Simulated assay, not measured.
Amino acid sequence: MRIGLITDNPGHPLLSAAAELLRAAGHEVEALDPGSADEPAGALADVYLLKAHTPRGLDLARRLEQRGAPVVNSAAATTLCQDRTLMAELAVRAGLPFAGTRTFATLAQWAAGAPMRSPVVVKSRHSRRADLVARVDGTAALGELTGSWSEEPVVVQEFAPNSGWDHKLWAIGDQVFAALRRSELSPEGRGPTLPLPRLPAGWADLTRRVGEVFALDVYGVDIIATADGAPLIVDVNAFPGIREQPGAPEALADLALGRAKG
């Protein structure tokens, strides 16, 4: 089998480990850097893994799909996860426990008419590296944030009291991996990723349901436990890093081969 990696970082630990497993089993693995490579001519790979989320990466994935190549995750599913407004709308329609989300054309627009009744979480509408994710507790913090991000399209989510730790759940096919990570919104800032040997009942099935709703094969779900212990989804990511999770490279290699044969 031939497996293509659409990525500008083929040395990423998850990708490189899965590629080693595939090559050891006699399969061919090739990396396509969407920032420098043209669309491959001639025969296509049996499957492509889309790790790049840039416009050029998504465009390359779409063109490969149009030629009949299977892409994991699809360009459409990956694109949807980059728009936090569409993400929230789809989650709510599907009955998923997703954080209440409002959308504003710019941060300045929201700041001009938003009485600060309680803490909120403000995020860039369009997910990308170094985007805006911040907790706002009052008008002073809002004013400071607006000074740097006034024209940024944003979503505003109600802040749900929680322990300050995010439950990081990742899925590769039907396999679910989990860890704890201190929220970047906590006063101490983001800390190390800690093992989470046991998930609360039903959370693994909830994660798989997210994959069904969003048509994702490799994805991450950020969940916080609210004051009563109920899960609340705050973000969904297409093809995240999934670092230091035993069994993840094997699961990715198996998924790639399954999609290639399918």
Rank of each mutant, 00 (worst) to 15 (best):
G4W: 00
L5R: 04
P10Y: 13
R23I: 12
A24V: 08
A25C: 04
G26V: 11
L32E: 01
G35L: 12
S36H: 12
E39V: 09
A41E: 13
A43C: 07
A45W: 03
D46L: 01
Y48S: 00
L50P: 01
K51C: 07
K51V: 09
A52Q: 06
A52R: 03
T54S: 15
L58G: 02
P70N: 07
S74P: 07
S74V: 11
A76E: 14
T78G: 09
D83I: 03
M87E: 14
V92K: 05
P97F: 05
F98M: 13
R102N: 06
L107A: 03
A111N: 05
A112F: 08
R117F: 11
R117E: 15
K123G: 04
R129F: 09
G143D: 09
E144P: 07
V155Q: 01
A160K: 11
P161C: 04
N162A: 06
S163E: 08
G164S: 10
G164T: 05
W165P: 01
D166C: 02
H167D: 08
L169P: 10
A171S: 11
I172D: 03
G173W: 04
S183A: 06
S183F: 02
L185D: 10
P187F: 02
R190Y: 06
L194N: 03
L194W: 06
A204I: 13
A204N: 12
D205E: 15
L206N: 12
T207D: 08
R209S: 10
L216R: 07
D217M: 12
D217I: 03
A225S: 02
T226M: 09
L232R: 03
L232H: 03
D235E: 14
Q245K: 06
Q245P: 10
G247Q: 01
P249K: 03
L257W: 08
